[in-house]
């Protein structure tokens, strides 16, 4: 697996898509704060209001960036036929999939850290008032949101295994956004229903729904982490099972 990682990391680093994503991420990180400043000069409200932009980025743009990068570059392996060489060289299907997992998880975390870094630097530069903000809750919230991104990454791997095609990126993104539908339906009956609470733990749109701020103490974070991790593991296992049986051209 190390050979696969060693071969693919320079390729990702040479990819223009990566740098485009990183530039856009940094830009959105700044914009997440400056757009709030344009509406209000209340320094105390800056962090909570900017948190909404943070949630919007993590639920809408992060799937595009993290899933997009992995899908585009992995699909290129299929379309260019490089995947065949990996098999002929004796790399197992599981190790190929795991290597992708390691590489693109790394770049998802990198994108996340860049956004969070720029976001907080912009907040500090804008003079945001952090008085009373529970740093512990902020860190837990950040980690949970990162986990949501990684879960989406695993979902995109499963989709690539099923259909290694450029259209997969669009399908993944649409399926991600379709999760809004059950959340809307559940919230129509009762926003505090058990179903709504459960869906909020596994879909980022539910988790960051309503008056979300990074400083809000999350409800049973261990349960949320457990459910997301479980779902991510299920996606990965399904991907491995499917990939191991798949006939390739």
């Amino acid at each position: 697996m190390s050979k696969l990682i060693y071969a693919d990391i320079p390729r990702v680093l040479k990819s223009k898509i990566l740098y485009l994503i990183l530039i856009l991420t940094a830009f959105i990180g700044v914009a997440s704060v400056t757009t709030v400043l344009l509406e209000s000069e209340d320094k105390a409200a800056l962090f909570p209001v900017a948190s909404n932009n943070f949630a919007m980025f993590m639920s809408v743009m992060m799937p595009v960036f993290s899933g997009g990068l992995s899908i585009m570059l992995i699909v290129a392996e299929f379309s260019g036929g490089i995947i065949r060489n990996k098999f002929i060289m004796g790399h197992s299907r599981t190790s190929i999939l795991m290597a992708w997992g390691v590489i693109y998880t790394f770049f998802t975390i990198l994108t996340f850290l860049l956004y969070v870094g720029v976001f907080f630097i912009a907040l500090l530069a804008a003079g945001a008032d952090f008085t009373g903000v529970d740093s512990g809750s902020v860190i837990v919230n950040l980690l949970i949101v990162l986990l949501f991104s990684l879960k989406f990454q695993m979902f995109s791997f499963l989709m690539i295994c099923i259909c290694p095609d450029a259209k997969t990126a669009v399908i993944c993104y649409l399926l991600n956004n379709i999760t809004l539908v059950p959340l809307m339906l559940a919230s129509l009956s009762d926003e505090n229903s058990k179903a709504m609470q459960f869906l909020s733990r596994i879909f980022i749109f539910g988790y960051t729904n309503g008056e979300y701020t990074l400083s809000t103490e999350p409800d049973k974070p261990w349960l949320t982490v457990l459910l997301i991790a479980l779902l991510a593991a299920v996606y990965m296992v399904l991907a491995v099972l499917y990939f191991n049986k798949k006939d390739l051209k």
Partner: peptide
């Protein structure tokens, strides 16, 4: 062994 199956396997 090496193989070129249908089209050459390369990054364009």
């Amino acid at each position: 062994m090496g193989a070129v199956v249908e089209t050459p396997s390369l990054f364009p």
